Simulated assay, not measured.
Amino acid sequence: MKSSARRRDRTPKTYARLEHPLVRDEKGGPFRQATWEEALDRAAEGLGAARGAFGMFSCARATNEMNYVAQKFARVVMGTNNVDSCNRTCHAPSVAGLSAAFGSGGGTSSYGEVEHTDLIVMWGSNARFAHPIFFQHVLKGIRNGARMYAVDPRRTSTAEWAESWMGLNVGTDIPLAHAVGREIIHAGLHNKAFIEQATTGFEEYAAEVEPWTLTVAEKVTGVPAAAIRDLAHAYARAERAQLCWTLGITEHHNGTDNVRALINLSLLTGHVGRFGSGVQPLRGQNNVQGGGDMGAIPNRLPGFQDILEPDVRRKFETAWDTVIQPHYGLNLTDMFEAMETGDLRAVYCIGENPAQSEADSEQAVTRMKALD
């Protein structure tokens, strides 16, 4: 018997790669091949005429060096802070939560430390699919004896490697985290010495999580009370533990609160600031952290230093021999609105495709077509 289903075409796709620059002789006209000299002269002339009405889209898949040069070009050559990348959007809640708790928007551990930990909690993260290189470190940790818990509404490919999968109801991450925190406190497993030495606000936190008993949390989250208790005790008793999350935590209207709820668990147990213990925000693209670290965002200079701080600006003005605008630039969404009003006339786009990634792609294409 033969199947009547159409056979999938497995012929490898081929793509043409540009070997020469292309330019248009008139707006909307066809591309033609050009020399590098002509293309660079055209770009320089056009961008020079757009000073004061310029925006830069940098790339979170590119190197630190490229992102550093991109933001420096915008600020030094074009005199604007209108530079943005997906660092600001896909993990802005992580940056906000981590900055509030630790003073920096990055994770507290290196990837290699997950190989030398005792417990790994993957919360809202299908790292096996989305972060395969990092997951190789996770697998080494598991082979070295680490236990892994997966917290995700879906039974993902990552969960297949976990000792326990906790399939919570969508949007109930905070109730679950609060229930874990309450159980740790009531079991007397919280790290009293660390809390007293390195944290503030413990009493307020304890009062906040108090209503979230295991019974209440089970009804809200759909996770059995016994499983919640198991996670709480395993995380608190582990000598070293890594708590990892990604877009399953951050891409919610309350993403920052989700991140803070997880950070509180690490502070409650003292699982931060020691080798093998920490929090790991796994970013949406391979160098989101680097793009932000290099300053390819409208409100921070390299090192996540606030543009509004006079001493910070003065330091970079001295190093770069320039004047840095003392206000935040436009983010990507703002830039598309500025295109419509005519306040933005030119865009330098590196490694991004807003014609496809913007929520309203047709509108994005229309506005970009109207640029000089």
Score class of each variant (00 low, 15 high):
337 E>N: 06
297 I>T: 14
176 L>P: 05
16 A>W: 10
302 P>C: 04
90 C>K: 11
184 I>C: 06
362 E>I: 09
15 Y>N: 01
52 G>K: 14
233 H>T: 08
325 Q>C: 05
88 R>K: 08
202 F>W: 11
201 G>I: 11
62 A>I: 04
149 Y>A: 02
344 L>H: 05
238 A>F: 14
99 S>F: 12
218 E>S: 02
197 Q>F: 02
203 E>P: 01
52 G>E: 15
352 E>V: 07
121 V>M: 12
57 F>Q: 08
262 L>D: 04
304 F>A: 00
107 G>E: 13
268 L>W: 13
218 E>F: 07
143 R>S: 06
291 G>P: 11
82 N>M: 03
245 W>A: 00
174 I>M: 07
105 G>I: 14
248 G>P: 08
182 R>P: 02
257 D>E: 15
4 S>Y: 12
261 A>M: 06
339 M>R: 08
368 M>H: 07
113 E>R: 07
48 G>V: 06
325 Q>E: 15
242 Q>W: 12
359 A>D: 05
239 E>C: 00
112 G>M: 10
263 I>T: 01
292 G>P: 10
158 T>Q: 09
339 M>P: 04
258 N>I: 02
33 Q>W: 09
9 D>E: 10
356 Q>K: 12
218 E>M: 05
265 L>F: 09
2 K>H: 06
346 A>I: 06
158 T>S: 11
235 Y>E: 03
12 P>T: 06
167 G>R: 11
157 S>L: 09
35 T>C: 05
29 G>N: 08
88 R>P: 03
317 E>R: 08
83 V>D: 03
184 I>G: 00
356 Q>V: 08
78 M>G: 00
166 M>G: 03
238 A>Q: 09
52 G>V: 14
26 E>W: 15
270 G>Q: 14
304 F>N: 04
84 D>E: 11
206 A>F: 05
134 F>S: 02
140 K>E: 09
275 F>D: 01
80 T>R: 07
193 A>P: 03
156 T>V: 11
290 G>W: 13
346 A>P: 07
336 F>H: 07
85 S>C: 15
47 L>R: 08
150 A>M: 13
